[in-house]
């Protein structure tokens, strides 16, 4: 495979935006889910599996999505891969929450 979408060392890019960003509750929850799923004592999957899932996102998603938005998609992929949940269950859950009260 040639250079992966994530493999950025040495590529041309603009100035570094030094502004500090506040974490959102969304960020915190996604971060916590990832930590729990990759925790060695839980053993659902490894950080490398997580990285692989993020690296295999389409280029537009890799650069277009926020950091934790990429993570949440990787969590979906690995949860399905490892059979922690099924496609069917996920679809039903998404349909059930679709009308969406604001995310708490």
């Amino acid at each position: 495979m040639p250079r992966g979408v994530h493999d950025l060392g040495g590529l041309p890019a603009g100035p570094v935006d030094l502004s500090e960003h506040d974490r959102t509750f969304f960020d915190q929850r996604v971060d916590a889910m990832m930590r729990l799923l990759t925790h060695p004592q839980n053993g659902h999957y490894t950080v490398d599996a997580m990285r692989r899932a993020i690296e295999s996102l389409p280029r537009d998603d890799y650069f277009g999505l926020g950091y934790y938005e990429r993570w949440v998609r990787a969590i979906r992929q690995l949860a399905l891969e490892k059979g922690l949940i099924s496609e069917d269950e996920l679809e039903r859950k998404l349909a059930a929450i679709q009308p969406s009260e604001p995310n708490k």
Partner: peptide
């Protein structure tokens, strides 16, 4: 250029 995940950056 192996297929799949690896941790050896391309530039090195």
């Amino acid at each position: 250029e192996p297929p799949g995940h690896c941790r050896t950056p391309y530039y090195l």
